[in-house]
């Protein structure tokens, strides 16, 4: 039987595509792993689970929450959080449980302590500094014009208004 050459290539291509299917499954699996938790008792606990995942940082991945990470350690920590929820632990208990093991690193909401003072207070310090600079400037500006200068300015404005009727005086 004679085979059409184009048909053989399409079979080869299909075979090659078929080899990619498990890979596709793996990619889909990464996304699916983040929305596990169907074994939780009720919707309220499931909601707390989702909230907790967003609040914790994957220890391996620097900037991914437990919810979004596909790292094996994130899978383990999600399982740990689910187990604690099923055991009836409070959100605070769960936070403490992870913090005791992985330190402040896992918390996306860092606690207030001396090493985080810069983080927490620098915006406040910058805001106060900015307010100070603005106050300084607004106080200094009127003082920089003397009475004589102001009298001269007023005189100039009056002269200008007098000569060009339809023009408003320009700001000075």
């Amino acid at each position: 039987m004679k085979r059409h050459p184009r048909r053989t290539t399409s079979v080869a291509a299909r075979r090659r595509l078929r080899r990619l299917v498990p890979l596709l499954g793996a990619v889909a699996g990464v996304g699916a792993s983040a929305i596990d938790g169907f074994d939780l008792p009720n919707a309220e606990v499931a909601a707390r689970y989702q909230r907790a995942l967003a609040e914790f940082r994957c220890p391996k991945c620097l900037n991914e929450s437990l919810a979004s990470s596909g790292a094996p350690i994130a899978v383990d920590l999600r399982r740990t959080v689910r187990r604690l929820l099923v055991e009836g632990k409070s959100d605070d208990d769960i936070r403490k449980h992870l913090q005791e093991r992985y330190g402040d690193f896992v918390l996306y909401d860092p606690p207030l302590r001396p090493v985080t003072w810069l983080l927490w207070f620098s915006p406040l310090v910058l805001a106060i500094a900015l307010a100070g600079v603005l106050a300084h400037h607004s106080r200094r500006r009127p003082a920089s014009t003397t009475d004589a200068e102001r009298a001269l300015a007023r005189q100039l404005v009056e002269e200008t208004v007098g000569t060009t009727k339809n023009h408003a005086p320009e700001g000075g």
């Binding site: 391996k60 094996p72 383990d76 093991r101 992985y102």
Partner: peptide, 13 residues
């Protein structure tokens, strides 16, 4: 096998 002791140890790799 499950990595549960690892979690208690704070192991991340």
């Amino acid at each position: 096998a499950e990595g549960d002791l690892g979690v208690n140890l704070g192991v991340y790799g």
